[in-house]
């Protein structure tokens, strides 16, 4: 399973960077969305993938018996999803406002603050 995931993660990173290098700000945001998904999938993969081994402790025991899947990467991903959800909602508002103010979707036309 890991090789497949590795290829998917790589493809996601490549796609997102391609999108971010486009001139349109909408594509820029799509690239950012893909990028955060790629990062989450990467954490999920390096956290170790196991099937059908919920990390639950049986009644009266102190440790789970047998193997168990590590729940922490999922907690990390969940937190990261929540954060990227908030940030991307902001980014959508930002490009909307920017489009209203600048009347332009093209990053190359937004250079007045560069030096």
């Amino acid at each position: 399973m890991e090789p497949v995931m590795a290829i998917v993660v790589g493809a996601l990173f490549a796609t997102s960077i391609y999108m971010m290098l486009r001139r349109s700000i909408v594509k820029l945001v799509i690239g950012l969305i893909l990028l955060s998904n790629a990062a989450n999938l990467l954490i999920f993969t390096v956290g170790g993938m196991k099937r059908g081994l919920p990390p639950l402790i049986d009644e009266g025991m102190k440790m789970p018996t047998g193997g168990w899947a590590d729940p922490l990467p999922q907690a990390l991903i969940l937190t990261a999803i929540v954060i990227s959800f908030g940030v991307l909602a902001f980014a959508v508002v930002l490009i909307h406002r920017a489009y209203e103010v600048v009347q332009e979707d093209d990053l190359d036309k937004m250079r007045s603050t560069d030096t």
Binding site: M20, I25, L28, L32, L35, S36, A39, L42, I43, V46, G47, G48, L72, P73, L76, A80, V87, F90, A91, L94, I95, R97, A98, V101, V102, L107, M110, R111, S112, T113
Partner: peptide, 28 residues
């Protein structure tokens, strides 16, 4: 607005790199 688009993009990129590095550290 123009400044913010660059600021937001590059800082988000750096945050995601940080997240990836944290994830890899945990995996290792």
């Amino acid at each position: 607005m123009e400044g913010a688009i660059k600021y937001v993009t590059l800082n988000l990129l750096s945050s995601i790199l940080l997240l990836v590095a944290v994830g890899l550290t945990y995996g290792m």
